[in-house]
Write a protein that binds this DNA or RNA. Structure first.
Length: 283
DNA sequence: CCTGAAACCTGTCTGC
DNA sequence: TGCAGACAGGTTTCAG
């Protein structure tokens, strides 16, 4: 489900709280509950409970699609994968061993305030790591698209150093961190680049435009609180602004040509065959 | 180094 | 209605 804008939206909500729930910042841990063992990728529940009890949440940050809850010397690192979601919920001050509040709740972090952080994940792909130093988990990640050190020149060089289908490369988190299937399709459409073109075939100006459109697509997603698709709804409405994603057969908003859906890197891929030609057109 | 397939999971939608 | 198959915002591992 979540790509960088959706993860950022969740982070914002947890930090700012809502009418019914407080901010996660400063919440003191009282315990934890686990309903699907694989969700906790490290250690065991008992170890986590003993080491986190009494510790306050010092911060909540994001790196790529990972969320990091900072407890000073300890960290919870969370990846939502395809269907994960995080929410603050009331009446979660103490462990629940029997059954969770909601269907598909996999993990709770209980706080002394009586509230708790609930990790809901239908497809069970999401993971929570309990670590002393999160750097080991994150060190393979590529740069954040908004990183000011990621210049046009550097991005062009990175593309030249690979010989991969451009869409496949954008989805590779060791190349860039945070882009997923929606935003890769949208950014490639915005820069008029066919998804299977080799990264090495891009010109310097195409690379510069692609980087610009990647950032623009992600920012638009953030501005709209992310995209809400299917039965998963978080309040975002970026799905109403898709130009190609999930628009198979519908007219391109630039030229009217029907949007095509294919498969690239085992992922559904949407593009306009006229605006994003594989070969350069004669003009 | 690069590509494609399979695996991990549950749920929804489509077509026969 | 029933049921098989495709498909879903992600990542890892393995074969070729």
């Amino acid at each position: 489900m979540p790509e960088l804008p959706e993860v950022e939206t969740i982070r914002w909500i947890l930090i700012n709280g809502s009418e019914a729930t407080p901010s996660i910042l400063g919440q003191v841990v009282a315990g934890a509950s686990l309903f699907w063992p694989k969700t906790l990728a490290t250690t065991n529940l008992q170890d986590l409970r003993e080491n986190l009890a009494g510790r306050p949440v010092q911060g909540l940050t994001r790196r790529g699609k990972f969320l990091l809850i900072d407890f000073k010397e300890r960290h919870l690192v969370i990846h939502l994968r395809m269907s994960g979601d995080l929410r603050m919920a009331e009446n979660l001050g103490a462990p629940r061993e029997s059954d969770p509040i909601l269907l598909h709740d996999r993990f709770y972090l209980h706080f002394r305030s009586g509230f708790g952080l609930a990790f809901n994940d239908t497809r069970k792909f999401g993971r929570v790591w309990f670590v002393a130093d999160p750097r080991d988990l994150l060190m393979k990640l590529g740069p954040d698209p908004f990183d000011t050190e990621l210049t046009e020149d550097l991005f062009y060089t990175m593309l030249q150093n690979k010989n991969r289908q451009i869409k496949s490369l954008l989805l590779d988190q060791t190349f860039l961190a945070g882009i997923g299937n929606i935003y890769s399709d949208e950014a490639l459409f915005g820069s008029k680049i066919h998804p299977t073109r080799s990264s090495r075939s891009l010109t310097h100006s195409e690379a510069a435009l692609l980087l610009e459109k990647i950032k623009a697509s992600l920012q638009l997603g953030i501005d709209h609180n992310g995209a809400s698709i299917d039965w998963v709804y978080r309040g975002g409405d970026f799905q109403n602004y898709f130009q190609v994603y999930q628009r198979k057969g519908q007219p391109c908003q630039v030229c009217g040509t029907p949007i095509v859906r294919t498969t690239v890197s085992q992922r559904g891929t949407h593009y306009c065959p006229n605006c994003q030609p594989k070969k350069k057109k004669d003009t």
